[in-house]
Design a protein around this nucleic acid. Structure first.
Length: 485
RNA sequence: GGCCCCAUCGUCUAACGGUUAGGACGUCAGGUUCUCAACCUGGCAAUCCGGGUUCGAUUCCCGGUGGGGUCACCA
């Protein structure tokens, strides 16, 4: 069997991190089985239409590496023979499907006004009953329906929940689930504006697009019976279903804005690497069966398996994401080469001062940041030496005299260093020699030098900073420190 | 409230019915060091509760509790 999965978001403005995980697992399952990953847009609610959201969604997916094989494969570009892949362009298909069900006697027109429905709901709630449609229009006669239609009365098409004993549905993750039709409403298939509801569009499209596995969020589990009933009503074979556990806020509520970032764009914009984000999210509800944690998207594609999915919902923990991101940054810098160059080029967008020195900045601060957007704040003192308390120049285990000596010797020695040899290694041995030759402690030299050139109590090591600053600026800063003492 | 799903350290998770219940993040302590990171070593920390089944339950069954989801002409 050809594996065909799909990600079918509604374009409400941004790609939610929960959506990312759903998309990722769908993508991985397709890759794992050499199948196809399809991107379809579910925009059957005109009220919720957000301009530009579709393109943003596609870009976000592609940005993190989840390139669709079919459907919306790029902004404004469709590929595949089962299109269109935007539901608002498939209205006729849904309308015909709904009509088919009416002809089969499995669906019916409903002319109930929203006021009546509203009132019905209120009354039911007052009586402590579960709100549900009372099925009034089920009983409409053929002539009444014709009359209403002729008068152009506002109508929806409802599905007729069949009078079966029980409905058994199957989910690959949760197993068999049995529900009673009494708990199901005669739900709406086609709205009065001619658009399909999710339930109809979803089923019609998943069949039409030959989807083999529907991988979606657990919030859809309660409506799975409706969907199964629909497949049966149409006479279609239903695809396999996997309902993924939800992602939660630290307080266990459904993952939402206001408790921090939830959109992929936000995370990327704040300096999280797509690869780290993907890696972290993949491990939320899935594990490789080993203790390995670092995986590229390609490696995930090979390792992924539905069997190792977890059933319990997971809290989205930014701390661990930070660790993944930091780990990726450190590894890339350590690896060097093209990866490092690419990261530097990528980092440029987070650097306001001297972006051309991105590579150096990464080397300097790479091990002490978890997000690339910290680069700017972390490096601020490089561009402008801040005012600092001169007392800080003296290391806690040192004295004023030793500090002055250390600084002076450092200034002398570095002044005489050939600017062509102004490298970290040479600078380090110069400073180290001062310590050795004058019977000083490292703290008598390294500490005041570091403070003099950075104004910081915490910073990268002196030689690294000095190399970055260059001879001229470095010597000026040392000079200044001496004058302060 | 009805229905549905779920339940191992604070968090993500591992454990053919037999393990000192493992790993990772975080945290704490120590090492390294001029500082901070990084790095290395170690510590603290969990099977929701109650019944069964079994020689033996984290694991299987039932009940409870807790958490979540869902009950729209939204997806």
């Amino acid at each position: 069997m050809t594996i065909r999965t799909r990600f079918a978001p509604s374009p409400t403005g941004y790609l939610h991190i929960g959506g990312l995980r759903t998309a990722l697992f769908s993508y991985l399952w397709a890759r794992k089985n050499k199948g196809s990953f399809i991107l379809r847009i579910e925009d059957t609610d005109q009220k919720r239409y957000v301009k530009g959201a579709v393109d943003l969604l596609i870009k976000s997916l592609i940005n993190v590496g989840l390139q669709p094989d079919e459907g919306l494969v790029a902004p404004g570009k469709e590929r595949g023979k089962f299109g269109p892949y935007i539901q608002s362009q498939r209205l006729k298909i849904y309308q015909k499907s709904a009509q088919d069900l009416i002809h089969k006697g499995l669906a019916y027109y409903c002319f109930c006004s929203s006021q009546r429905l509203e009132k019905l709901k209120r009354e039911q709630q007052d009586r402590q009953e579960m709100p549900h449609y009372d099925g009034r229009c089920r009983a409409l006669s053929e002539t009444e329906i014709k009359k209403n239609l002729a008068q152009n009365r506002s109508a929806v098409i409802r599905f007729k929940i069949p009078p079966v004993e029980k409905i058994v549905v199957k989910d690959l993750l949760h197993g068999e689930i049995t529900v009673s039709p009494r708990d199901l409403d005669d739900f709406i298939l086609l709205k009065s504006d001619g658009y399909a509801t999710y339930h109809l569009a979803n089923v019609v499209d998943d069949v039409g697009m030959k989807i083999s596995h529907v991988i979606r969020g657990e919030e859809w589990l309660p409506s799975l019976p409706k969907h199964i009933l629909l497949y049966q009503a149409f006479g279609y074979k239903a695809p396999e279903f996997v309902h993924l556990p939800l992602l939660l806020n630290p307080d266990r509520s459904k993952l939402s804005k206001r408790q921090g970032d939830v959109s992929v764009e936000d995370f990327i914009g704040h300096g999280y690497l797509p690869s780290a984000l993907i890696n972290y999210v993949a491990l939320l509800g899935w594990n490789p069966g080993t203790e390995r944690e670092i995986f590229s998207l390609t490696e995930l594609s090979q390792e992924f398996s539905l069997k190792k999915l977890n059933k319990a919902s997971a809290i989205f923990d930014v701390q661990k994401l930070n660790w993944f991101n930091a780990e990726y940054i450190r590894k890339i810098i350590k690896a060097g080469g093209k990866e490092y160059a690419d990261l530097a080029a990528y980092s440029v967008r987070f650097i306001t001062k001297m972006p051309e020195r991105a590579k150096d900045l990464l080397r300097l601060f790479g091990s002490r940041l978890s997000r690339l957007n910290e680069l700017d704040i972390l490096s601020a003192w490089l561009w402008k030496l801040p005012k600092y308390d001169r007392k800080l120049l003296i290391f806690k285990k040192s004295t004023k005299d030793k500090t002055e000596l250390g600084l002076k010797l450092a200034l002398d020695k570095l002044s005489s260093l050939d600017p062509k040899k102004w490298t970290q290694d040479n600078i380090f041995s110069a400073l180290e020699n001062i310590v050795k030759e004058n019977n000083l402690a490292p703290g008598d030299v390294f500490w005041p030098v570091r403070l003099a050139i950075s104004g910081q109590e915490k910073s990268p090591s002196p030689a690294e900073i000095l190399e970055f600053l260059g001879a001229e600026e470095s010597l000026a800063r040392l000079q200044k420190a001496l004058s302060l003492l």
